[in-house]
Simulated assay, not measured.
Amino acid sequence: MSVIDVFWEFMQKYHPQLVNNDWLVDSQLVKSKDIINPEMRKIIPLDMLEVNLILFYYDGNSKDIVFLFQNNKGKQNIAIGLLSDDEFLNAFKL
């Protein structure tokens, strides 16, 4: 399933109140050890030293951020979740 499909399925199922926002996306390859949030870091398999981190956010609001982890080649989705006000709300392994 594509990144966009995973994002919209997650949003419609778990956070429908946020669906109508004008979402933007950014991605980068990061080292697993550099992820600051401990709950997010726990989701990543221990043997993965790098992950592709895809962030969804909407213009004018840094409060709600959806994150999606993929393997470092961007071929396998690992997990998706939501941070709101830097608080880990929920995440699901894919």
Rank of each mutant, 00 (worst) to 15 (best):
K31H: 09
M11W: 07
V30L: 11
E50W: 03
Q17A: 12
N37F: 04
V3E: 14
L49N: 12
Y14M: 05
L94M: 12
M11C: 07
N20L: 08
D26P: 00
K42L: 11
L83D: 06
V6R: 12
N52V: 08
I4D: 15
K13S: 14
M40S: 04
F92Y: 15
K31W: 02
I4E: 15
P45W: 03
E87N: 13
N72T: 01
K93I: 14
F67G: 04
K13N: 12
S2L: 03
F7D: 08
Q28W: 01
H15S: 08
D26R: 15
L83W: 04
Q17H: 11
L18G: 04
S27P: 00
P45G: 01
K42Y: 03
W23I: 04
S62P: 06
A79L: 03
G60K: 03
F88I: 09
V3S: 14
N37Q: 11
P38G: 04
H15G: 01
N20T: 09
A79H: 03
E39M: 12
N71E: 10
P38W: 04
K93E: 14
K75Q: 10
K75F: 00
Q17K: 11
N37E: 12
V3A: 12
N21E: 14
G74F: 03
V19Q: 13
Q12C: 07
D85Y: 10
L68T: 07
E87A: 11
L89P: 04
N20E: 13
M1K: 09
E50R: 12
N72D: 15
G81M: 04
K75P: 00
N61V: 03
D5A: 14
K63T: 08
E50D: 08
Y57F: 15
K42Q: 13
V19W: 01
G74C: 05
N52W: 07
W23Y: 06
N90W: 08
W8F: 12
I44N: 02
F7R: 06
L83A: 07
M48E: 09
V6I: 15
I4S: 13
D26L: 10
L83N: 06
Y14T: 08
V66S: 07
R41I: 04
V3K: 13
D85W: 05
P16N: 03
Y58V: 00
Y58N: 11
D85R: 06
D59I: 01
S62F: 10
I65K: 09
L46H: 05
Q12K: 15
